[in-house]
């Protein structure tokens, strides 16, 4: 019976559950969401695709002509690519609702503007 008091108090208080898809909790500063590439800064060194533990980053082409393909379905948001990037071209955003039914839609391509 030692929980009775707390139980009675809780009965008349607002639940703590967040009605998730309708209300969202703001994510904190420094949250590791979907990484994005800034192709103006990218020098195409390929380090990000080399260090990626889950093979989520693919380099197409070489050097300054390269493109980056990011397969977000493989990404595990460790942010090692952000850390390894010598030009700080990669940033982790606060985007986290990335689930879906179609893998082909989970490919983010980063092309250079010529």
């Amino acid at each position: 019976m030692s929980l009775l008091k707390e139980a009675l108090q809780r009965l008349f208080r607002k639940p703590v559950t967040l009605k998730y898809p309708f209300e969202k909790r703001p994510v904190p500063e420094g949250f590791r969401g979907r990484p994005v590439w800034d192709m103006r800064k990218c020098i195409g060194c390929g380090l990000c695709s080399n260090v990626c533990p889950s093979g989520a980053i693919e380099m197409v082409g070489k050097g300054l002509q390269s493109e980056i393909k990011h397969y977000v379905d493989r990404c595990m948001f460790c942010s090692q690519c952000v850390e390894s990037c010598p030009r700080n071209a990669i940033k982790m955003t606060q985007e986290y609702e990335l689930a879906g039914f179609d893998r082909s839609k989970m490919l983010y391509e980063y092309k250079r503007e010529i």
Partner: peptide, 13 residues
């Protein structure tokens, strides 16, 4: 509903 409230949940909604 009551059980959920006691447990700080919403229950059926």
């Amino acid at each position: 509903k009551v059980l959920a409230r006691i447990q700080s949940r919403y229950g059926p909604l």
